[in-house]
Amino acid sequence: MPVTTLNGHEIHVNEEGFLTDPTEWDEELAAALGAQIGITLTDEHWNAIRFLRKDFAETGETPTLRRVSTVGGIPIKQLFVMFPQKPAKKMAYIAGLPKPVGCV
């Protein structure tokens, strides 16, 4: 498993670059991860990222887009605006979590 350094954080990632140890994550790192994929985190982004972290801590799974919308209360349309093209994967990446596995 590769070790990579980002903004002075030494992190374990998989071959794609997703963190493999969610405990290595903090909010400062999230900002750096966002910057890596061209996303500057606003309050709205943080709202989504914090929901992902909280939900993952509770369920052990990265929430799907649908769950972020129905449980997290952020409309899907807005998620596509904030994290263009591949919102579920981009949110998971910034939140230091694995890609969601659910189909819907």
Binding site: M1, P2, V3, T4, T5, Q36, K89
Partner: peptide, 17 residues
């Protein structure tokens, strides 16, 4: 696994192939 030399950041490619 024993190699802890930090390599440059690996960034997922979110642009579809």
């Amino acid at each position: 696994m024993t190699n802890t030399d930090a390599s440059p950041a690996i960034v997922p490619n979110f642009d579809s192939e």
